[in-house]
Measured scan of single mutants.
Amino acid sequence: AVTGSQTALLLRAFEKDRFPGIAAREELARETGLPESRIQIWFQNRR
């Protein structure tokens, strides 16, 4: 499950760019500790 702090970080990124590229998703994966594929799905679901 995604924690509150991970969600906050993802929401901030989403406000800046609703369609992040692979580099941005990989950076978010490093920052959150989540797999990049999970980040991609999160953005798809959020849109």
Rank of each mutant, 00 (worst) to 15 (best):
L11H: 05
L11P: 02
F14S: 01
S5V: 13
I39F: 02
L28Y: 03
F43L: 03
N45Q: 13
I41L: 12
Q44I: 11
T32C: 05
E27Y: 09
R18E: 08
I41R: 10
R30I: 07
W42D: 01
R18T: 06
L10M: 04
I41H: 10
F14E: 01
K16P: 01
L28G: 01
I39E: 00
G21W: 03
E15S: 09
I22C: 11
I39T: 00
T3R: 05
R38L: 15
I41Q: 15
T32K: 00
F19Y: 13
F19I: 05
Q44K: 10
E15F: 11
E31H: 08
V2P: 11
R47Y: 04
L10N: 01
I41M: 13
P35A: 09
R18V: 05
R38H: 12
L9N: 03
L11Y: 05
L11E: 15
T7C: 15
G33F: 02
I22F: 12
G21E: 06
T7K: 14
P20S: 01
F43S: 00
R25S: 03
R12F: 06
E36D: 08
R12M: 10
R47T: 05
P20I: 04
R38T: 15
T7E: 15
Q40I: 12
E31R: 12
A29G: 05
P35K: 06
R38E: 15
E31C: 13
A23I: 10
A24E: 10
K16E: 07
E36R: 04
F14A: 02
E15K: 11
R30V: 07
T32P: 00
R12E: 09
L11N: 10
R12C: 09
F19G: 01
A24P: 02
R30N: 06
T7D: 10
Q44R: 09
L9W: 06
A1N: 12
F43P: 00
A23D: 10
P20F: 03
Q44H: 10
G4R: 15
A13R: 02
F43T: 01
T7F: 15
R38A: 15
A8F: 08
K16N: 10
F14C: 02
V2D: 06
L11A: 06
D17I: 04
G21Q: 07
R46L: 10
R25G: 02
R46F: 09
E26Q: 13
R47V: 08
E27F: 09
N45I: 10
S5W: 15
P20M: 03
A23N: 09
G21L: 05
A29R: 03
E36Y: 05
E27Q: 14
N45G: 06
F14P: 02
E27K: 14
N45S: 08
E15L: 12
R47C: 04
T3W: 06
G33T: 03
V2S: 04
Q44W: 07
R38K: 11
R30D: 04
A24F: 07
G21T: 12
N45T: 11
Q6T: 07
D17F: 05
G4M: 14
P35L: 08
R47H: 04
V2R: 04
R47W: 06
A29W: 02
R25C: 12
R18G: 05
E15T: 07
V2L: 15
Q6N: 06
G4F: 10
V2K: 04
A13M: 07
P35N: 07
D17P: 01
T3Y: 05
I22A: 13
R30E: 05
K16L: 11
A23E: 13
A29V: 06
T32L: 09
A13C: 13
E27W: 10
R38C: 15
A13F: 11
T7A: 14
F19M: 05
R38W: 15
I22E: 10
A1T: 13
W42T: 01
V2I: 15
G4C: 15
P20D: 01
I39S: 00
W42M: 01
W42L: 02
I22N: 08
E15W: 10
A1I: 13
L34Q: 02
L10T: 00
L11S: 06
R18Y: 04
Q40V: 12
N45W: 14
T32D: 01
I41Y: 08
G4S: 14
R18N: 10
V2A: 07
A8I: 13
G33Q: 04
P20Y: 02
T32V: 07
E26S: 08
E31V: 14
G33I: 01
L28V: 03
L10P: 01
E27G: 06
A8V: 11
F19V: 04
L28P: 01
G21S: 14
R47G: 04
I22Y: 11
